[in-house]
Nucleic acid binder design. Structure first.
Lengths: 348, 348
DNA sequence: TCCCGAAGTTCGATTTAAATG
DNA sequence: GCATTTAAATCGAACTTCGGG
């Protein structure tokens, strides 16, 4: 590897001057163009690339951001990761990606590894995460800018990016209602999952405003589970139960897309076609939703934008610590969007 | 941040001794247990964590592996990435994840960034990559152990992990044939995609062996495109054409799962149910396949295992350069597995 | 005082060579 | 020579200080 000293020798200047020129440091104002040219030529000729270890040792900067995902195989992650990657690229940071597998020990080990590497910020993709106050505590004392995607929090040391679950669920029910559906089944999220409550609030608020009765016998809850695919299986089972009950319903509002897929499968098994016999709506707009047969009507989380937003907050946080500014945590709630496809139909 | 010198002061020994003890270096054999104890206690008391920049500067090691994906949103990636992440974790390496977006300039920039950071190995996930000999050249001259997943290559400086496409396609057709299907539609991969040819070979070889005639009018090709989702759309369109032709077929062998999803949609649109009116088989076993309605019969690539395998090769490569051994590139071809679900049915 | 450039120190850990009893 | 410990050199870049014109 060629060092700055070799460039110095080759160009005939000292390594100081080389450093100043190549970094375009403030002092380089004074250095004549001829000198700069010679140095740059020498650097290029030798194929000089600064040693980032040395640079980081001195500058205490890693130009790296730690990304922690709770479960990569959750389809919800993909687009968010894409958004993160893309924005980080633009800002010239590189991501170290870690997948916590929903395990606390793994979380701790990874957090330690990332901190040891002096990542300049942390972005945590808390998908399908069940309340765990300790994790937050660990994060808070890490003392680097941290942004959490997917969980609303009240801390003011950790920023967050979430969807407006309430508005989304509200819109979903409104859609079904506007199509003429009155007897609607609901599969709610697991009680301990952070998203569950606000979504249900959105549903109740619309129902109340529209004077719609919610039949408690048509309301089922997803069981708690650490595995995102389980919401597919549970969606399947709960829908089977719903059908067995023989209480008529013309539409089903599922907690998320995976649940909706499970529901559609159960419906199909029972000889019920979607949307002819029953409309189904999901939440998230996972990649598979538009590919499904029928294409799934759902409430889209602006996932790529959420990733981008998280990076924006992270970079702002990094700049703040560089300039020794204090910044308060930011809490952004993104607006979801109803995507009408073919799994819902009008009764009118 | 607490440094080794502070630990030295606290424990009453020199930083040399502290370093030796904490790293369990060879010389630590001579150091009495009492000394070790005191040093370890001091380190723990102060919460000492070695500065990895300094350590890397000396040791020239980063304990980091660069992972380059050509398109993260391709569902094919997810499980492979999971396999990579998991194995890297076990080996105490951290991945830097980059997504090249199928753009050559982005590839080059990222490669440079990774090399600057002295990643100790490179794993390239060449999904949906169209031949580009220059990329290979760039990789070859990088002089760090490189493993490519998803592309068979003949180079002996770059290792590779691929599926046995030929065997997989062979098995797919065999499955259809064993179910009694004789009039079969085929949607082949784009001509320029590396996987296309071997899969077709597998099909022809089975057809020949079984004495099955392939009707050229039922054989269509996916157009070239940089976008993996396009295979869904093309699958849809080509299947429409197939249907319009009015040549009867009882089964459809799609290039991959995405194509199969598109085909199923087109079939449904035309009022043809899967598998009642037409069986469909895919390739890959993407996450969505088991969730689909109907669940898709397909040929599974052992994706997680492929990720694991790639990391194994990478780590072996790293160890080789550490010990100044020469290792030849390794080329592993993994065996795919037929997964029979409900999108195919027997005619017998 | 302004411009240009160099010598020397620093970042924090590892390692070599060497000094003790 | 052996067990035990350490001073000093090193890794490569960046910054502080200083000197000459």
């Amino acid at each position: 590897m060629v060092t700055i000293r070799e460039v110095a020798k080759e160009s005939g200047f000292s390594s100081t001057t080389v450093s100043i020129v190549l970094n375009n440091a403030p002092l380089s104002r004074y250095i004549p163009t001829a000198t700069k040219k010679r140095i740059e030529r020498a650097a290029k000729k030798l194929g000089y690339r600064p040693n980032l270890f040395a640079r980081s040792l001195r500058s205490k900067r890693s130009h790296t951001v730690g990304v922690m995902v709770f479960d990569m195989t959750d389809p919800y992650c993909t687009l968010i990761l894409r958004g993160i990657e893309n924005s980080l690229y633009q800002a010239s940071y590189l991501p170290i990606l870690t997948d916590v597998h929903n395990e606390r020990s793994r979380f701790e080990r990874y957090l330690e590894m990332l901190l040891d590497r002096r990542v300049e910020a942390l972005i945590v993709l808390a998908n399908w995460l069940f309340v765990d106050i300790d994790v937050l505590a660990d994060l808070e004392k890490s003392s680097i800018p941290t942004t959490m995607i997917g969980r609303e929090l009240q801390t003011d040391s950790i920023s967050s990016v979430t969807v407006d679950n309430e508005a989304g669920a509200h819109a979903a029910l409104e859609h079904l209602h506007s199509l003429g559906h009155r007897e609607i089944g609901f599969i709610r999220g697991p009680k301990t999952l952070a998203d569950s409550a606000p979504r249900w609030r959105g549903i109740r608020s619309f129902a109340k405003a529209a004077g719609l009765e919610l039949d408690p016998r048509l309301i089922l809850d997803l069981p708690e589970s650490r595995d995102p695919i389980s919401s597919f299986e549970s969606g399947y089972k709960l829908t089977e139960e719903l059908i067995k009950q023989k209480r008529p319903f013309t539409a089903l509002l599922a907690f998320d897309d995976m649940t909706a897929f499970g529901a559609i499968r159960a419906l199909a098994k029972a000889g019920l076609r979607v949307p002819e016999h029953c409309s189904v709506i999901g939440f998230d707009d996972v990649a598979a939703s538009s590919l499904y047969t029928p294409p799934l009507t759902t409430v889209r989380q602006p996932m790529e934008a959420m990733g981008t937003m998280a990076v924006g907050i992270a970079v702002e946080g990094i700049n703040a610590v560089l300039e020794k500014r204090k910044v308060a945590a930011v809490h952004r709630k993104m607006t979801p969007e109803l995507v009408v496809r073919e799994s819902t139909r009008s009764l009118l």
